[in-house]
Simulated scan of single mutants.
Amino acid sequence: MQSFRERLQAFNKCVCDGARLMVGQGDYGTYVAHIAKTHPDQAPMTEREFFRNRENARFGVGNSSGFRCC
């Protein structure tokens, strides 16, 4: 059985992960686990590259349509 502190930490992680996803910033650890499982021949992006990639996707960098807010 989990202690109150463990449950609170799990809840906090869930809230933080949800907030990151709402603003287009995925979880780097989840990304690395996904790459290791489904693309073992590929090296994962660094954390900095991952952050930049998500930011670019969020704001439409490289799109022919230009800036994309939402």
Rank of each mutant, 00 (worst) to 15 (best):
S3R: 02
S3N: 04
R5D: 13
R5W: 09
E6S: 15
E6Q: 15
R7N: 13
R7E: 12
A10G: 06
F11E: 05
N12M: 09
N12E: 09
C14M: 09
G18Q: 09
A19P: 10
A19Q: 11
M22T: 06
G24C: 12
G24S: 11
Q25C: 11
Q25L: 14
G26F: 06
D27T: 12
Y28L: 05
Y28G: 05
Y31K: 05
Y31H: 08
V32H: 06
V32C: 15
A33P: 10
H34M: 14
A36T: 12
A36Q: 13
T38K: 14
P40G: 08
P40I: 12
Q42H: 05
Q42L: 10
P44D: 04
P44C: 07
P44L: 08
R48I: 13
E49S: 13
F50C: 02
F51W: 13
F51Y: 14
R52P: 00
R54C: 15
R58Y: 00
R58C: 00
F59C: 03
F59G: 01
F59T: 02
G60D: 00
V61M: 04
G62N: 01
N63I: 01
N63M: 03
N63V: 02
S64H: 02
G66K: 09
F67W: 11
F67D: 03
F67M: 07
R68H: 12
C69W: 07
C70I: 03
